[in-house]
């Protein structure tokens, strides 16, 4: 069963949203820029590293392991057991390529105990 919207409601859809001014104080609106993450390092520091950095150890070490981009992308998109997945809206393909590149440039950390 479905009710079509009344025409008044339909009209409201067309005009609403354009007429809601509100005063902003000090700061300008701020969003992450078009390039979703500034760099591979930025993505690693902001997201992946919170689990994968050697000093954290929630996830396995990724630094300096030469992991292929295609593998990293598959894991990020599908998630992997304890690891959550990330849609492209959160981490886009371009950023995955950058983080893969960044990780491969890092030295492998000393063996963990």
């Amino acid at each position: 069963m479905s009710f079509p919207l009344s025409s008044a409601a339909a009209k409201r859809i067309l005009v609403a949203g354009a007429v809601l001014p509100f005063a902003l104080l000090a700061s300008a609106a701020q969003a992450q820029e078009d390039s979703q993450w500034k760099s591979g390092e930025h993505l690693y520091d902001s997201v992946c590293g919170h689990c994968h950095k050697p000093e954290v150890g929630v996830g396995p070490v990724l630094e300096g392991r030469g992991l292929p981009e295609v593998y990293i992308k598959a894991i990020v998109r599908n998630g992997f057991n304890a690891m959550p997945a990330f849609p492209a809206s959160f981490v886009d393909d371009e950023s995955i390529a950058k983080v893969a590149e960044y990780l491969s440039t890092l030295p492998a950390p000393a063996a963990q105990p």
Binding site: L24, L25, A26, S27, A29, A31, Q32, P87
Partner: peptide
């Protein structure tokens, strides 16, 4: 309906200590 990309921090008022944000804003951001 994924609003992750709707991620403006519209206002943070350090005097009144309030924030106004869009849905995609993360605590990290």
């Amino acid at each position: 309906l994924d609003l992750k990309k709707m991620n403006k921090i519209i206002n943070i008022d350090p005097v009144m200590c309030t924030a106004l944000v869009e849905p995609g804003v993360t605590f990290g951001q």
